[in-house]
Design a protein around this nucleic acid. Structure first.
Length: 702
RNA sequence: GCCCUUGUAGCUCAACGGUAGAGCGCGCGGCUCAUAAUCGCUAGGUUGUAGGUUCGAAUCCUUCCGAGGGCACCA
C-alpha cells in the first residue's frame, strides 16, 4: 500500500476577496502535491474557506447580505480564481474545497470538543473550563480591542478606542477556556526536539521564544448573544465556538474525523503524514494552539508546519491599495501563462522568506529563463532533428571508430559523463524539493540547460551535418539534448504541468508525466526513431514594453472604478442599519443616534493644504504634518497614516481637517487637529477626503 | 520599550576564519540550429560605519547608521 501524504493550505477567511497570497500558498501546495504524487505517494490536498465569526457577520452586514450569502460569495470567488489558474480538482489540483459551514464540520468539531474535554492537560488539569473573558470593549465598534487598537491618553487610566477616540469599557462575558497555560513545557519539548515540525528555523525560534514568554489560557467560545455565527458548543446552547478551534479543526473534519459523511476519505489513513502550509502571520495558531488542541484530544500531530513569507512589491514595500502596488490576480491571469506565474512564484521567492513581485520581474524571468532558456533549448533541438534527421530522433550511440571524430568536435564519446551530471542534478533537485527549497531546486535545473546549450554551441551541429564522418557525433548531440529534455519535463512537471506536457509531446512521447517518478528516470529509455511531434513555442516571448503598457492602462481604469464606490456596497450601506442589519445583528448595542444640525456645526471642518509631511522616528504608524489652514502659521497635525502613504507624495494635497479638535500630545508632539479619511474595513487603507474642484485653503465644510 | 534577523558588484543572492563568487542586466567579439535565441570575453565591490580580537575577517566581538521581523484571542 502506498505511503500517504496530506497537504493543506490554510482555509482562507471569507471576509475578503481572493488575492495573490491565497493564490501563492495554493500554488505551492499544488506543486508539492503533484510532486508527491509523482513520487508514488497517495496524496490528499485540501484548501477552502473559514466561514465563521464576528468579522464575517460584519462583512455580510456591510454588503447587505446574510452571513451565508457572504461566505457563499467569497468561496465562490476563490473557487473561480483557483479554476482560472488550473488548481481545481478537474485540473488535478485540490481534492477538497473545505468549508466550515458544512454540517459534517459541525459534527466533527463538536466531537473534537467533547474529546478534548474528556482529557487532562499534561499537568493533570481539566482541559476546558468555564470562566470569564475580560477585555476592553468599544460599544460603537461592538468589539473587544487589542493593545494595538487602543491608546492611553496622557493622565488617563482608561484607554481610548483608536477609531472613536472615546473611552473603552472594561467588560467581561462568560466563556469557555482551553487551558493552554499547561502546555508550555510540552510544546517547547516538542518543537525544540523536532527541527522539521516548525519551519523555517527563524520562525521556529520565534515560536519557541513566544512560548517561553508564558502562555495564557485561550478563550474558545463566545456567548451566542454577542457572536451567533458559529458552531454551537456541545451541551450549552448559550455559546458558540470561537474562531481558532473551529477553523483549525477543519483539517481533520474534512477527512472524516468525528463525522460519517467524510469518513470514507480516511482520517486514519491521511492524518498520519500531514504538512500544513501557512503564511507567517498565522504560524503561531498552527503551532501553539493547534498542536495543543490535537494533543489534548489524543490525536497524532502534523509532521510539518511550514510558514512562508509575504510577497512585497518590486521595491520591497507591502502591497496596498493606496500605493497602487497590488498584484492583481486577474491581470496575472490575463497577461501571463499560468506556468510562467507558477515558475516565477517558486523560483523568485526563497521559500520561507519574503519575496518581491513586480510584473517586470515576472516578464524578465519568463523571457530569460523560460523563453530563452528552456523553451529555446527545445526549439533549437527539435528544429535540428527536423532539418537534419527528417524529424526522427537518431540513436545516441557512437561506434568506436568514430570516437576520434567526436572528440574532434568537442563531444565526449562516452555519454556517461553527461549521465552522471544529470543523475546528480536529479538527486539534488529531489533533495531540495523535499526541503521546500524550490528556488534552489529550479536554479540547479537551469545549470543543466546551460550545459546542454553549451554542448550544442561547442559541437556546432550545423557544421557536423556537412561532414559525413560526423554523422554519429551529430546524432549523439541531438539524442543527448532530447533525452535531457525528457528528464527535465518529468522533473519540472509539478511546477509547470502544462508546459512540460507540451514539450513532452513535442519530443513525440505520450505517457502521462504526472505519473512518472523522477527517481526512476533512466538514461537511454528514450527510443531512437521517435518521431518529433508538432513544435511551436511553448513559452512565447513577452513583449515587455507592450504588456507593461497594457497593464498600466488597465490598472488606471480599474483604479478609477475602485475609487467609485461599488454599487452593491453603496446600496446596502445607504440603508438604515435596522434594514441592512440582516439576520443576526444584535440590536441592543447599536442604538440609532441622531444629532442636531447644531451638533454638527460644533465640528469645524476646514480645507487645509499639506505643506510638510514626514515620518516620525521610531513610530510605525504616525506621520507628522504641517498643514496650512489659512491661519497665521500652519498647524502641526499627527495622523496614523504612515503604513499607507508615502509622506512625500502627500505634500501639496488639500485635505479636510477637523480644526477645533482638542489638541493632544502623541510621541511628545502636539497634534492640533485631525485629518479626515474614509475606510470600510479597519484594515483598509484610509482614503483621504479631498476635492475635485479647486478650493481655497481655510474654507469651511458645512 | 524589549528581543531577533539583516546590510557583499546596477539588481537578486552565494561565500560564514585563509587570496570576494554566481545568475540576470550592461559592453565587446564569435556563431546561425533556435523564440534578436546561443557561446566566449570584459567591466564593476577598500563586503553599511568606526574600532577591536587574530599570523590572517565579508565571516568573531563592540559602537554607530540603515532595513526587516517578533512581543497572543484578528482568519
Amino acid at each position: 500500500m502506498a505511503q500517504t501524504y496530506y497537504i493543506t493550505t490554510p482555509i482562507y477567511y471569507a471576509n475578503s476577496l481572493p488575492h495573490l497570497g491565497h493564490l501563492y500558498t495554493t500554488i505551492v501546495a499544488d506543486v508539492v502535491n503533484r510532486h508527491k504524487k509523482q513520487r508514488g505517494l497517495d496524496t490528499y490536498f485540501l484548501t477552502g474557506t473559514d466561514e465563521h465569526g464576528i468579522n464575517i457577520q460584519r462583512a455580510a452586514d456591510k454588503a447587505g447580505r446574510s452571513p451565508k450569502e457572504q461566505v457563499d460569495f467569497v468561496s465562490g470567488e476563490l473557487k473561480r480564481m483557483f479554476h482560472d489558474f488550473g488548481l481545481d480538482t478537474e485540473k488535478g489540483g485540490y481534492d477538497v474545497f473545505m468549508r466550515t459551514t458544512e454540517t459534517f464540520h459541525y459534527e466533527g468539531v463538536q466531537h473534537l470538543w467533547v474529546e478534548i474535554a474528556k482529557n487532562k492537560t499534561p499537568k493533570g488539569n481539566e482541559t476546558i473550563y468555564k470562566g470569564f473573558y475580560e477585555g476592553w470593549f468599544c460599544a460603537p465598534c461592538a468589539e473587544y480591542k487589542t493593545e494595538d487598537q487602543y491608546f492611553l491618553a496622557e493622565g488617563l487610566e482608561i484607554p481610548l478606542c483608536l477609531i472613536h477616540e472615546r473611552p473603552l469599557d472594561r467588560i467581561s462575558e462568560e466563556s469557555y477556556f482551553f487551558r493552554l497555560s499547561d502546555y508550555d513545557e510540552f510544546l517547547i519539548d516538542l518543537i525544540a526536539n523536532d527541527p522539521k515540525l516548525v519551519q523555517p528555523e527563524s520562525r521556529r525560534n520565534e515560536v519557541i521564544s513566544f512560548i517561553k514568554g508564558g502562555l495564557q489560557d485561550l478563550s474558545i467560545s463566545r456567548e451566542k448573544k454577542s457572536v451567533s455565527w458559529g458552531v454551537p458548543v456541545p451541551d450549552d446552547e448559550n455559546h458558540v465556538m470561537y474562531v481558532w478551534l473551529d477553523a483549525l479543526s477543519n483539517y481533520i473534519t474534512a477527512i472524516g474525523y468525528g463525522n460519517s459523511e467524510k469518513a470514507s476519505i480516511g482520517f486514519d489513513k491521511y492524518w498520519q503524514n500531514v504538512t500544513h502550509l501557512v503564511g507567517k502571520d498565522i504560524l503561531r495558531f498552527h503551532t501553539v494552539y493547534w498542536l495543543s488542541f490535537l494533543s489534548a484530544a489524543g490525536l497524532p500531530l502534523p509532521k510539518t508546519v511550514y510558514a512562508h513569507g509575504m510577497w512585497l512589491d518590486a521595491d520591497g514595500r507591502k502591497m496596498g491599495k493606496t500605493l497602487g502596488n497590488v498584484i492583481d490576480v486577474d491581470v496575472l491571469h490575463e497577461h501571463f501563462q499560468i506556468d510562467a506565474t507558477r515558475y516565477f512564484l517558486l523560483r523568485e521567492m526563497v521559500f520561507g522568506q519574503d519575496g518581491k513581485f513586480g510584473y517586470e520581474n515576472l516578464i524578465d524571468r519568463a523571457n530569460s529563463d523560460l523563453a530563452s532558456g528552456l523553451g529555446n533549448l527545445g526549439s533549437r533541438t527539435f528544429s535540428m532533428i527536423t532539418k537534419y534527421r527528417e524529424g526522427l530522433l537518431p540513436s545516441g550511440k557512437i561506434a568506436e571508430e568514430n570516437y576520434i571524430n567526436a572528440k574532434r568536435a568537442g563531444i565526449n564519446p562516452d555519454e556517461q559523463e553527461l549521465v552522471s551530471v544529470l543523475e546528480h542534478a536529479r538527486d539534488e533537485f529531489l533533495r531540495r524539493f523535499e526541503n521546500f527549497e524550490f528556488s534552489l531546486a529550479l536554479e540547479l535545473i537551469w545549470t543543466v540547460i546551460a550545459r546542454i546549450d553549451k554542448m550544442i554551441s561547442d559541437s556546432k551541429p550545423w557544421e557536423l551535418i556537412k561532414d559525413e564522418k560526423q554523422a554519429e557525433t551529430l546524432n549523439a548531440v541531438l539524442y543527448r539534448a532530447t533525452e535531457t529534455l525528457r528528464w527535465l519535463c518529468v522533473l519540472l512537471y509539478p511546477v509547470m504541468p502544462d508546459a512540460t506536457k507540451k514539450i513532452y509531446s513535442q519530443i513525440g512521447l505520450s505517457e502521462n508525466i504526472a505519473a512518472i517518478d523522477p527517481a526512476n528516470l533512466k538514461w537511454g529509455e528514450l527510443n531512437a526513431g521517435t518521431k518529433i511531434g508538432e513544435t511551436e513555442a511553448v513559452f512565447p516571448r513577452i513583449d515587455k514594453a507592450k504588456v507593461m503598457n497594457e497593464i498600466k492602462e488597465q490598472s488606471a481604469v480599474s483604479g478609477q472604478q475602485s475609487a467609485e464606490p461599488k454599487p452593491e456596497v453603496t446600496a446596502a450601506e445607504s440603508l438604515p442599519p435596522a434594514v441592512a442589519g440582516g439576520l443576526t445583528q444584535p440590536t441592543d448595542n447599536t442604538e440609532q443616534q441622531f444629532i442636531d444640525i447644531e451638533d454638527f456645526l460644533k465640528v469645524e471642518l476646514r480645507v487645509g493644504q499639506i505643506m510638510v509631511a514626514e515620518r516620525i522616528p521610531k513610530a510605525d504608524k504616525l506621520l507628522r504634518f504641517e498643514i496650512d489652514l489659512g491661519e497665521e502659521k500652519p498647524r502641526q497635525i499627527l495622523a496614523g497614516l504612515a503604513e499607507y502613504y508615502e509622506p512625500e507624495k502627500l505634500i501639496g494635497r488639500k485635505v479636510v481637517v477637523v480644526a477645533n479638535l482638542k489638541p493632544r500630545k502623541m510621541r511628545g508632539l502636539e497634534s492640533q487637529g485631525m485629518i479626515c479619511a474614509a475606510s470600510l474595513e479597519e484594515e483598509d487603507t484610509p482614503a483621504l477626503a479631498t476635492f475635485l474642484e479647486d478650493v481655497n485653503v481655510g474654507a469651511r465644510l458645512k
